[in-house]
């Protein structure tokens, strides 16, 4: 967005009705990676520590460079761009999970990422993982008890026998992915962010999860979707942000941006 003349004139009527839920103001995100460039030997490393120099083994990756946008209530926004363009990183910063180097993200309520994978433990039964995952997302014990059956039914884990009482490491990769999605999708969110969650499980489960995401969209204020599947972006989003090398290339209505993106990528 061009920096408009800084007038203090009364707001356009349009802006009064539209409630912003996420505002990203010139967001920069830098990752520090240890052991990226291993040059030199132990004595060199020791010398650096003694002289308090910043280690040459710490490499900085500037993943997002100055992204600015405002998302409003009721919007579904797609994020597109090639691998490593900073889409997932940007989502994490919006969720407040990654600190920004410069710039600020303002949000209404607590945006959350759809995903509990990291909190689940393969050695535990599916049953215990449902409870653990729910608690990790901030649900209360009562809420989990209420929704437990729904989660299990939705995942379809028990369709082929009593699998929910077996450790998760015994599940097939598809079954585990289905259970993870079911747990993650059981919670209501103000601002929901989905990172490539639609490609989970078999055809039947994919249809079910797309329907669940549409439901979540209705309940949530704003939805962000990262996907490489142009079809699912087109069917779920009304606005698209195109990121490339951490910079915002284009921000506009889905069809317009997708056309430009497809021309660029030659699809």
């Amino acid at each position: 967005m061009a920096v408009a003349e800084q007038t203090t004139s009364p707001l356009p009527a349009d802006e009064l009705e539209r409630v912003p839920t996420v505002i990203a103001d010139d967001v920069h995100i830098v990752y520090r990676v240890y052991g990226g460039r291993s040059k030199g030997n132990a004595t060199a490393a020791l010398r650096r520590i003694i002289r308090r120099e910043s280690s040459a083994r710490v490499r900085e990756v500037h993943a997002v460079r100055g992204v600015t946008f405002t998302a409003y209530r009721g919007e579904a926004i797609g994020l597109i761009g090639s691998n490593g363009s900073g889409k997932s990183t940007l989502l994490r910063a919006i969720a407040g999970l990654l600190p920004t180097e410069r710039g600020k993200v303002y949000t209404d309520g607590q945006p959350s990422l759809l995903g509990v994978n990291a909190a689940l433990m393969n050695d535990l039964t599916g049953e215990r993982n449902v409870v653990l995952g729910g608690l990790a997302m901030g649900m209360s014990r009562e809420q989990i008890k209420e929704r437990y059956q729904g989660i299990v039914d939705f995942s379809g884990i028990n369709d082929k026998g009593d699998f929910i009482s077996l450790p998760m490491r015994t599940y097939s990769s598809g079954m585990a992915a289905r259970l993870r999605f079911s747990i993650a999708a059981a919670k209501d969110h103000d601002v929901l962010m989905i990172d490539e969650a639609l490609a989970t499980g078999d055809k039947k489960f994919q249809r079910r999860s797309e329907a669940r995401i549409r439901e979540l969209r209705k309940e949530a204020g704003t939805v962000f979707l990262v996907s490489h599947n142009n079809k699912s972006i087109r069917s779920t989003c009304d606005r698209v942000l195109w990121l490339e090398k951490g910079e915002l290339v284009m921000d506009g209505p889905t069809e317009e941006v997708m056309k430009a993106y497809e021309e660029e990528t030659g699809k």
Binding site: L11, L248, M250
Partner: peptide
């Protein structure tokens, strides 16, 4: 930075 902004988006009149 962006070539198109959202068609219905109002020009930014106030700092974010």
């Amino acid at each position: 930075m962006s070539e198109t902004t959202r068609a219905s988006a109002p020009p930014r009149a106030v700092p974010l």
